[in-house]
Nucleic acid binder design. Structure first.
Lengths: 232, 232
DNA sequence: CGTTCAATTGATCAGCGTCAAACTAGGTGG
DNA sequence: CCACCTAGTTTGACGCTGATCAATTGAACG
C-alpha cells in the first residue's frame, strides 16, 4: 500500500477532515490493486466487502433486469463508489466493471464502518458525499423524464464542453454504445441523433467532437443548473 | 408547537437517537402549519429555509423543465423531505405542492444545520436517511431505464399490494394522472395500460384496484428486491 | 344546475427500438 | 507486413410503443 502516494487520497473531500489516526487505520487494511479491462468488480446484489476508489482508468456502473442492461454511470479518478452500500452493509444496487486497465484502492467495508462510528468528521464528510450522490441521481432522473433523447445528447455534449474547460473540440471518452446506454437510447439511435445535431454545428469523428455553433446547440439543449450543473 | 404530539416525530429514525437537548433546540424553532390543497410549498431552485416533515395529508415532489413537468415522488406521513438541500444549504432540485389538506412541521434549516454540527448521533442518522434516499432514486432510475411502461405499472400494483399488507384489493391513493407522470407516461397511456393488464387479472374501478391473478401479474412484472424492495 | 377538471376512448403520428447488412477499426497471428 | 477476425459503428427498412390531438363521459364542487 505504501507503494502509492496516499496524499491524493487523503485530500479527497471524503477523507480530508478526518483524524490522522483514523485515516491511518483505514489505510492499514487497504489494498491497491490493478485490474485488466472488462473485469466485473461487483455484481448487483452482492454485499460488497470493500469501498472502492478509482485511482487510474475508469469503471462503469451498470444495472440489469430481465436480460436487459443499462449504464448508470462512469467513475473516473479520483473518486469512490458504492459508498452507500458499504456503509449500510446493504446489497449493491449496481454492478461495476473496469472499462480499461484500472488501478483501484479497496478499503475493507468493516473498517469504513468502524471508522465511521468513531470519527465524527468522517461521518459528516460522508453526509456531504451522499448528499451529492443523491442530488446527482435526482438530476439524472429529471434529465431522463423531462427530455427527449436528442435533448439529452445535446446537453451531454455541452457538459463535456464545459468539463473540458470550454474547449470547442474534445473527446467523448467513452464508447458510443455506452454513452447511448447511459443516455437511455440504443447505439443506432445515438448514431442518428449525432447526425441530427450536425444541423446544430456538431461534428463527430470517432470519439472526437467539434462544436462549431455553441449558441444554436445551447438553444436546443436549454441547459439548466438544476439538471446539468455538477456542483449545486 | 406544543399543540401537537411530538412523540411521533421524536420516534422518526432521523431524530430518535439524538440528544434530548438538541431535539428540544430543533423543536423550539419549529412551526406546525396547515395547508390547503394545491399549495406550492417549494419551488425548484429555491433555497429552502426549512426542513419539511409531513404529519398529515400528502405532498407531491415534482420537477419542471422547458414547460414540461414530471412527478418525482409522493410524500406521506410521517416523513421528511428536502433534507439534502436543507443540510447543504443548496437550491432545491424539486418543487413541492400539497395534494390535499396537509399538516406540516417546518424546521428552520439553520437549526437543522446547527444541530447537525454538534450532535453526532443526528449526523449519523442523517447518513442513514440519505443513503436510503439515494438508493431509492437509484432503484427508480433502474425502473425507468430497464422496464417498459406496462412493466412499471405492473410492478407498481404489486408494490401497492405488498404495502397494503398483502390485500388483493386496495386503493391507488393518487390521481391517475399523477401516477402516470410518476411512472413516466401520459394519462392516456396509463388508461390503456390498465386495460392491457385486465388480461393479467387486474380490475380497476376508479382508484380501487382488485388483483384476481397475482401469479400471472408477477410473471409479467418480475419484481426484484434490487428495484422494488423499499427496504434493502 | 352549471362549471371544472379528471378520466376514457379513438384516430393519428412521431420517436425510437429492432432487425439486418455493410462498413470500419483495432488487435492477433501467421 | 499483411490477412484476418472480432467488435463497434453506421445505415436502411420496418414496426411497435407511446405521445398527441380531439371529443366524450364522468365525477366533484360551489
Amino acid at each position: 500500500m505504501r507503494s502509492i502516494d496516499l496524499t491524493e487520497i487523503r485530500e479527497l473531500p471524503l477523507f480530508t477532515d478526518m483524524a490522522d489516526d483514523n485515516f491511518e487505520q483505514l489505510m492499514r487494511g487497504a489494498y491497491l490493486q490493478n485490474f485488466p479491462p472488462q473485469v466485473e468488480l461487483i455484481s448487483e446484489g452482492d454485499h460488497s466487502d470493500f469501498l472502492h476508489i478509482v485511482v487510474e482508468g475508469s469503471v462503469e456502473l451498470f444495472a440489469s433486469w430481465n436480460n436487459r442492461e443499462t449504464t448508470m454511470a462512469t467513475v473516473r479518478p479520483i473518486s469512490a463508489f458504492i459508498l452507500a452500500a458499504a456503509l449500510k452493509d446493504a446489497p449493491c444496487l449496481m454492478s461495476a466493471r473496469t472499462l480499461e486497465k484500472a488501478k483501484l484502492i479497496l478499503l475493507p467495508a468493516v473498517d469504513v464502518r468502524a471508522v465511521f462510528e468513531i470519527d465524527n468528521s468522517f461521518a459528516r464528510a460522508v453526509v456531504t458525499e451522499l448528499a451529492q450522490c443523491y442530488r446527482g441521481v435526482i438530476k439524472s432522473t429529471k434529465n431522463l423524464k423531462l427530455r427527449t433523447s436528442i435533448e439529452r445528447l445535446a446537453n451531454q455534449l455541452i457538459k463535456l464542453h464545459v468539463r473540458s474547460g470550454g474547449l470547442l473540440e474534445f473527446s467523448l471518452n467513452v464508447e458510443k454504445k455506452r454513452l447511448a446506454s447511459y443516455l437511455g437510447m440504443t447505439p443506432e439511435n445515438l448514431s442518428r441523433a449525432f447526425k441530427t445535431l450536425q444541423a446544430y454545428g456538431v461534428i463527430i469523428d470517432g470519439q472526437n467532437v467539434k462544436l462549431t455553433d455553441i449558441q444554436s446547440l445551447k438553444d436546443l439543449a436549454k441547459p439548466t443548473a438544476l439538471i446539468d450543473d455538477p456542483k449545486s
